[in-house]
Amino acid sequence: MALTELNLEFKPETPKTIKDEWSHIGVVASGDLEVLIEKENALKGKIKIHILTTVVGFDDVWETVVKKFIDKTGLSGVKVSINDNAATPAVVIRRLQQAVDNGGGLQ
């Protein structure tokens, strides 16, 4: 069974970016995920998200969860890489928020 790979791109209405150059949080334990946020100048106002997950058939849920987070926070100008091992949507949102906080917050 292969891993599911998702590449998403969004353009939030009120773009904000993290303070630090990069940020990382989480461990790929069972039911958990890791989030790596890296600033990229070429992505001004936009956000690229790369997801690698063990779960098959939840592509729409991923898109909804991530879109909801980005609409709420306006996170942009960054590349987000996610390695996931069957985390639930609540955990995903929590980890994304932690990663943003760990990167010095939004500005």
Binding site: L3, H24, V28, T53, S81, N83
Partner: peptide, 16 residues
């Protein structure tokens, strides 16, 4: 991002 190439082939979760 140096992940395990073996786990990727086997469809297991990888870590950076």
């Amino acid at each position: 991002k140096m992940t395990s190439p073996h786990l990727l082939i086997l469809g297991e979760a990888v870590e950076f």
